[in-house]
Simulated scan of single mutants.
Amino acid sequence: MDSAVDYWTARALLEWQVELGVDEAILDAPVDRFEKVEEPVAVEAKPKGPPVPPQPVEVDPAQEATTAASAAVSREALGDAMQAFEHCELKLGAKNFVFCDGNPDARVMIIGEAPGREEDLAGKPFVGRAGHLLDKMFGCIGLTRSSPDPAKSIYITNVMPWRPPANRTPDAKEIAMMLPFLKRHVELVSPDFIVLMGNTPCQALLGKGGITRIRGNWTEALGKPVLPVFHPAYLLRQPLAKREAWADLLDLSARLED
């Protein structure tokens, strides 16, 4: 209490305020209610519980394959890019990467399905029984994988460079992720003719199967003349189909001569 105001004076002032209707004391000093007051800044409350981990970014294997394949400026670089590709689980169970065989300058490029057991062991396409039959078939029209002459040689690859378990047919997802590499392979080799052996390469490049219906019918893919034919493995199971296969080879030979 201020020493200048005695008890009786202070009591008289208090009683006077009570008579005026003052019944509550708020502050010791007056407050200007018209003065602008800064609003307090709201602080966002942090959520309780453990932090939410960042969600993984979804990867498109086909898009990554397209990027990797486009960057390859040679067959060797393409092979390296395919071996570095981590999205095809077939490589986990395969013994070897099977890329190609034959003369890369050949006018004829043969595309098969995928390596089998013998191919997986050797690291080369078409070296088993089916491969021996393939060599005999094309040898009959003067073409071999060992000839240095582009007009008398063949170049061989597959849609899939790794052997599927138990030689099963590659599924659509596996074909789609490896297709950009196959397309780039064709671009780099630039053959005059492409021979598709069996349903899988036809599905990959033509978007359709049913080899018994479409074999022998010339079509086009990737800007190249394409001939679907029976796979040699099918001919080993169905010897009577060799006559149709021979007719397809004669047709190819005639195209090469023209």
Rank of each mutant, 00 (worst) to 15 (best):
D2P: 14
A4I: 05
D6A: 08
L14R: 13
W16D: 12
W16T: 03
E19L: 15
G21K: 15
I26M: 10
L27Q: 11
A29Y: 11
A29W: 10
V31C: 05
F34R: 13
E38I: 12
E39I: 01
V41E: 10
V41P: 03
V41K: 14
V43G: 04
E44L: 09
E44P: 06
A45G: 07
V59T: 12
P61I: 02
T67I: 15
S74V: 13
A81H: 11
E86A: 15
E86M: 10
H87P: 02
H87Q: 08
G93V: 15
A94V: 07
V98W: 01
V98Y: 01
F99L: 03
C100P: 02
D101E: 04
G102C: 01
A106R: 01
R107S: 06
V108T: 04
M109H: 04
I111Y: 10
I111F: 05
P115W: 02
E119F: 02
F126C: 07
A130G: 14
K136V: 13
G139N: 07
C140Y: 12
T144A: 01
P150I: 00
K152W: 03
P164S: 00
R168D: 08
P170A: 04
E174C: 11
I175K: 00
P180F: 08
F181M: 00
F181P: 00
H185K: 12
E187Q: 15
S190C: 09
M197G: 09
T200V: 15
C202Y: 00
A204W: 04
L205G: 00
K208G: 05
G209K: 04
N217I: 06
G223C: 06
V226S: 11
L227Q: 01
P228E: 07
H231M: 00
A233V: 04
L236V: 03
A241P: 07
E244A: 06
A245E: 14
A245Q: 15
D248N: 14
L250I: 06
L252Q: 01
R255A: 11
R255K: 15
L256N: 02
E257G: 02
